[in-house]
Design a binder for these strands. Structure first.
Lengths: 199, 199
DNA sequence: TTAAATCAGTTAACACTGTTAACCTAAATC
DNA sequence: GATTTAGGTTAACAGTGTTAACTGATTTAA
């Protein structure tokens, strides 16, 4: 991951912390440079432009998220339990490492529009784990899903919605945070399990 | 809504279209002004600053979304059908009016962090309709929900996740868009309906 | 050993950004 | 007819991303 350069790493770390603490709009190359004790243009020795710097931050966070999910879910034997573990791990990562999670979605880089999928190349591993888990569950008649690919994307989207509402502090003040997360996870899971219709 | 000023309205419209067509980052007061055939500082006669201009755009879009949902769901008699209508209307609005929907979530204004909930004051109507519908369904034993308030928020979050994945073009190329939306809506709904456990 | 090349940074400058202060001018009001 | 107000203007400030040209040290090559 690290290209073996201390200044480059320092720039990334400073950017991460400034993004989280001061927000996206006030992040400037000059401020980063000043904090690193270096001239603004030095950043361009390691990153083509501001966009690429942000993009690097995003990729690192996505990689972290993937690793986190794999660590939590890969060892789980039962496919339904693994399914639940993936979903819970996703939420747990977002809540536990908001400064990393928020970078993935909050940072708006110009290059994003140009190669939007490239961004999630590294999320592929976790995504494919979810697809495979769903396929396995469907085979065992434990899940009610037409297309595992679609289902996996849908779950990912739903979970992102849930986590981001929490992180953005948009939760109704009457609503308890933990209860919201747990309930939501439960409902997302329930939406995919096999069911016997009540008539 | 409109404060009866043609230039003010024109500024809003130009901003909206520039936001959608050229993106958030390239939106500048000077460009807006140039397109309106007026000096940059004239914008400040109608909006305190760039943030307030963006904020106004957001509020208008949120109001539109609320009206859209009410129009589609209010006339529906059966509470379960109304529940489904609200969810479907949300998605339909996002897909049909992406330039309005995206403003709600994509525009990052500095004031957002300061009064994050204020932003959704006007969404309250649609939100409370959802809460009431869920409460009614729970009373009639047609829905499996602990806390309707929490459930409503959860649904809102999940739907946002789904719509934004579609609008951002982050959908896997192998996945059909309409199928994704329909399947996702169905799974979200299923997650809240009453179920008989399969053991 | 010395000359050339590369590395790691610098300064100065350009074209842009949001925003403020001061000014102007035509219309409305007293 | 004088004065206020509405609806703009221009000039300027401080900050932005980025480029080009430069510097000085270190490494490499002859």
């Amino acid at each position: 991951m690290s290209e073996e350069n201390p200044l480059r790493d320092q720039i990334l770390e400073i950017s991460r912390s400034m993004l989280f603490n001061e927000g996206y709009k006030s992040l400037s190359m000059r401020k980063i440079a000043k904090k690193a004790g270096v001239s603004a243009t030095s950043i361009y020795l390691y990153f083509e432009n501001k966009d690429h710097l942000l993009h690097t931050l995003i990729e690192e966070s996505v990689e972290d998220l993937s690793r986190f999910i794999e660590k939590k879910a890969l060892p789980v034997g039962s496919c339904i339990d693994r399914f639940k573990a993936i979903i819970r791990a996703y939420a747990e990562f977002g809540i536990t490492y908001p400064e990393k999670y928020e970078i993935i979605y909050k940072v708006r880089s110009d290059s994003m529009a140009r190669y939007p999928k490239e961004k999630f190349r590294k999320a592929r591993r976790a995504y494919e784990l979810l697809v495979k888990t769903i396929e396995e569950s469907v085979e065992k008649n434990q899940m009610d899903v037409d297309d595992p690919l679609v289902a996996a994307y849908s779950i990912w989207a739903q979970m992102h919605g849930i986590v981001s509402v929490v992180l953005n502090g948009r939760l109704d003040s009457r609503i308890n945070r933990e209860q919201f997360i747990d309930d939501s996870i439960e409902h997302v899971i329930q939406g995919f399990l096999i069911r016997a219709a009540v008539t």
